[in-house]
């Protein structure tokens, strides 16, 4: 059985990076989905033997540099997300997409809690309730992201 196609993997990450720093109007910025996490969850879920904690951590470091965050903040978050995904992947792959979406939301909320601690230690201002909006938007987008990446991956493997 062929593994993941590197082209689709790299392409999905580049698109996620672009969406991460795409300028949004100020009111919409807090609702920006955590694209990189969505993409990494998909790859961890579908190819747990190849994409693991280490790969997610390295991707997270790139996100840190891309957005100018403290080096290691997103690395830590994505490593934890992918670890939990790897533990769940046998069960989660059998769930319908809407149920997966709830789990993804919970994962990302958990990530925000961890980031809140770290940002609090650094002294950054995380604002009000909008801080928790992004995981919900990400969860709503999960079925769409999953189907699209799945279609791309399947097609590239067939050809």
């Amino acid at each position: 059985m062929a593994g993941l196609s590197p082209g689709v993997f790299a392409g999905s990450l580049i698109v996620a990076f672009i969406l991460t720093i795409l300028p949004l109007p100020e009111w919409a910025a807090p609702y920006r989905p955590y694209w990189t996490a969505l993409v990494m969850i998909y790859w961890c879920l579908s190819f747990p033997g190849q994409i693991g904690v280490l790969a997610s951590w390295l991707v997270g470091l790139l996100v840190d540099v891309l957005t100018g965050s403290p080096l290691g903040l997103h690395g830590l978050g994505l490593a934890i997300i992918s670890y939990i995904t790897l533990i769940l992947h046998r069960r989660a792959r059998l769930w319908p997409l809407w149920q997966q979406a709830f789990v993804v939301t919970a994962l990302l909320l958990n990530d925000r809690v961890i980031a809140l601690w770290i940002r609090g230690l650094i002294g950054q201002n995380t604002g009000g309730w909008e801080y928790w909006a992004s995981p919900v938007v990400s969860g709503l987008l999960w079925p769409w992201v999953h189907s699209m990446l799945n279609a791309l991956q399947t097609r590239s493997r067939r050809s």
């Binding site: 904690v53 280490l54 470091l61 290691g72 903040l73 690395g75 490593a79």
Partner: peptide
């Protein structure tokens, strides 16, 4: 789990 522990400590060190 091992790699998680390693990268988490590395992240803290990096930060």
């Amino acid at each position: 789990l091992i790699s998680l522990v390693v990268v988490v400590s590395l992240s803290v060190l990096l930060m």
